[in-house]
Amino acid sequence: MGFLIFLALLVIGYLFGRLAEQRHYRSIHEREDALRRITVIPLRVPPPELLKHDSQLVSGSVVVSVDYFKTVAAGLRNLFGGRVGAYESLIDRARREATLRMQEKAQSLGAQTVYNVKYETSRIGDNAGQGLGSVEVLAYGTALTAPSVKA
């Protein structure tokens, strides 16, 4: 009985998790294309030609959850060692989503670039010690708006 529940959860996790991941990647690709003109640059100091711009802190964050299949797959991978692909794609999605949300924020301010971008990743949730649970990614930076755009 316990094994059946485990199997059912595994199948549910695989199907729903894959569906969510595919859908998410599709939306990420679409929005990345749309937001490509908002440049994101991890430089600490902007070049002198931007020194007349207005600056403002912008951030974007997202919390994504693992699915049961990923938890089990990563647990197995832990035994053998090597790349944990299940978690790699999860964190990749979270980072890109956070970046996109930050870009959207910058766009709504009329900014063209975001400088000094920093990332911050943390684990959320209560299943410490038994896998990843949920992961939060925060992206933040300084949006630079041309003064003429704002006026």
Binding site: L9, I12, G13, F16, G17, A20, E21, H24, S59, S61, V62, V63, V64, S65, V66, D67, Y68, K70, T71, E97, I124, G125, D126, N127, G133, S134, E136, L138
Partner: peptide, 20 residues
């Protein structure tokens, strides 16, 4: 609800909101 979501995967909108 979030621990249920750990079976299915996907974004935890409630937590995203809370943290921001």
């Amino acid at each position: 609800m979030a621990s249920f979501k750990n079976f299915f995967g996907g974004e935890l909108k409630g937590y995203t909101e809370l943290l921001s």
